[in-house]
């Protein structure tokens, strides 16, 4: 049964070719951004990363579940007024932590809305 669903791939030399032209053109903007960042005078802060990417026609990779910081999420979900000071306006917190806090707060609002509408009906 197991063997029936498992397939032994047949590989040829042409499978090992990289589409060099597409690769180079896709990476051109990132190469430029890397050069700028490598300049000794450049100082980056997490707050201007989005702008930096946008200047090169790029958008920073989307936030996924794997990037979620569950501590800040819990602050947003359980006690957002305190979390606002602990996470949202805390300059030591990363972009992911702040985003996780706001996601937690939004989920909390949605849950409260559902709870109150079902209690009212």
């Amino acid at each position: 049964m197991l063997m029936a669903s498992w397939s032994m791939a047949t590989t040829t030399a042409s499978d090992f070719t990289l589409d060099e032209q597409t690769f180079q053109s896709e990476m051109a903007a990132l190469d430029q951004l890397e050069q700028e960042l490598s300049a000794p005078t450049f100082t980056a802060t997490s707050s201007n990363n989005t702008v930096l990417f946008a200047q090169h026609g790029l958008q920073q990779s989307a936030f996924g579940l794997g990037d979620m910081e569950w501590g800040p999420f819990a602050w947003g979900f359980c006690c957002w007024p305190v979390g606002f000071f602990v996470v949202a306006i805390n300059s030591n917190k990363s972009k992911n932590e702040k985003l996780s806090f706001w996601i937690g707060a939004a989920v909390s609002v949605v849950f409260s809305a559902i709870g109150s509408s079902s209690a009212g009906s």
Binding site: A29, L30, D31, E34, F53, L58, Q59, Q60, S61
Partner: peptide, 17 residues
């Protein structure tokens, strides 16, 4: 080390140095 990632045909990209 520099890690660059780019989704083909999209603006979505990542850079880690």
């Amino acid at each position: 080390c520099t890690v660059k990632s780019k989704t083909v045909g999209s603006h979505e990209a990542g850079l880690i140095m």
